[in-house]
Design a protein around this nucleic acid. Sequence first.
DNA 1: CTGAAAGCGCTTACAG
DNA 2: CTGAAAGCGCTTACAG
Lengths: 348, 348
Amino acid sequence: MSSDVSPARPVKVTLNDVAMQAGVDRSVVSRVINNDPKLSVRPETRQRVRDIIEQLGYRPNVAARSLRTSRAYMFGLLVPDYANPVFAEIIKGAERAAGELGYGLMTASSAGVRLSLDHYLTLLGQGRVDGLLLAGEDSGHALAQLRASQVPWVLVNRTLEGSRYVILDDERAGRMAVEHLISLGHRRIAHLAGPEQADTSSRRRAGYLAAMRTAGLWVEPDLMVHADYTPAGGAAALDRLLCAPRPPTAVFVSNVASAVGALHAAHAAGLCVPRDLSLIAVHDMPLASHLVPGLTTIRMPLEELGRRALEMVAKLGPDEPIAEVVADPVELVVRESTARPMSGLPQS
Amino acid sequence: MSSDVSPARPVKVTLNDVAMQAGVDRSVVSRVINNDPKLSVRPETRQRVRDIIEQLGYRPNVAARSLRTSRAYMFGLLVPDYANPVFAEIIKGAERAAGELGYGLMTASSAGVRLSLDHYLTLLGQGRVDGLLLAGEDSGHALAQLRASQVPWVLVNRTLEGSRYVILDDERAGRMAVEHLISLGHRRIAHLAGPEQADTSSRRRAGYLAAMRTAGLWVEPDLMVHADYTPAGGAAALDRLLCAPRPPTAVFVSNVASAVGALHAAHAAGLCVPRDLSLIAVHDMPLASHLVPGLTTIRMPLEELGRRALEMVAKLGPDEPIAEVVADPVELVVRESTARPMSGLPQS
DNA sequence: CTGAAAGCGCTTACAG
DNA sequence: CTGAAAGCGCTTACAG
């Protein structure tokens, strides 16, 4: 009865087709597919079912399964922009973690469609995802909707009152960067910070201030400027720093994208990095080693950030708090953009 | 009857809940939501339904809807790697196009999970997406599966026998790059090509050869080298070019990532770009303007590529052929990395 | 060891 | 103008 298989595949193969071909009930096929431990079935029957599935190219209809089980087997991740390599690493970690749990990850960007979180939630509807990771950008109002909904969600790389977030140890990154500059002999160390509202930026700034204080160094107000996390913003901000009455000998840049612009601006101003100015930035990207000079950076565990966020959302219900700082190491990667200050004396 | 709304929202709001609250049948609510033109209903009823939906925060269950309509209202896009900015632009275009059609786009990477297309299709199951865009990388064997399946799909930025692809005019890009170098007076023009199997690379190389031939310039074999599309590969390949008996005065680099490495290698070899060597590459990225010197590039309509691919897949059935070269303009973006050759005479 | 049955939440042709 | 009913393709507690 299983030998008269028609070679022309039906347009759509369902559980029923498999069951009929195999001469068993749909429920048996379902249990075989899902490895139901409660199912006791003769090994040859199980194998026959598997063969037929393979033969017919059957793949379960996820809509039907989701409807039945109330699970989508899918997580969602909203990023502001794919072009930012920081997010590329976060996505990678989240994807891996989802894969290991047998789930998929669907990523969308708010940049593509000028997609508000509101809009995104509507598009998602109910039952499309079992959890949501929100990376970057504001989404203030729509969070209320999220709270009311039944999907667990988490902020990635930023905090908000309400404590549903996973972040990195940005303060430590700031301290390490500045300690590196101090150890080289720098004393006039500027900070090219990120956007005022960005809390990654304020945490890194806190690290900067802490390290300066610890070393007994005074931070002049005009040695701290803000920029957005873009090359253009970084370039403009560096120009401002160079206008200070007594310009810095080193700059701790809050973000690698800004640093690309800052490096460019330094060159344009006729400075030689690192001879005239040392530069160090947060986030180690493949690009950093190919700039001229190679950029000294602080490597953050971004992939682990994505992974942890996904795992939290997968594990925790919609009402349980999530407030985690990823514990993986933050590392200093020394390249050519930092050196002893030209006229600088060794410290003390 | 609609005034005794309980303030505590049910855990899960369904069509039924809305219908009961509004005092109408489920089918009416469904039609209101979907703007069924066949539905004639009193305006006040329609409004009441809308109010209740808003009030209860009802969002349709996509699994149920998909099961019923056999449509997922979602497209899928598989990229090899988010870290490559080329894909960021393609994704953006595809997302926008999907949004305009009222669809979502779910993006996944093969890098994250070491995800084969096979594996990806299994994860997708049936009914998760209404069409699939495949960007980059091989997927040879699994395409057979795709052909057998009912989802329309398309290759993005590469061809394959079987003609389901949308690509850019890479040959034109190659010609433009070389013509620019020739117009500056270069005659010994090398080509730092991409991977041998990459067909973007072979099309760009064809453009290089065509432009050289048209100008009556001879291409010495050791002025053409292959590299992968990475900075490290580009650096190694440039080193090889510099070893030629008579090194080139200009290099057309097949890809911007390789060019970053090539620029680095040129500096490391003690060459000054563009004085000693001119460099031009395909793909204009924000980064290109912030390298030192700013990189002269050929801007390709990558966003449009993503958009067209999505539109094709949305429009065409699984059996209709897709073979399109995006018609949008390919542009030369002149920056500082190209100049007249130092010892070069003006042409002829 | 295997099957029958209910039901997840929708949409839509049809009846009134 | 509105409602009743069937059914999309699964899973799972239950009966035998």
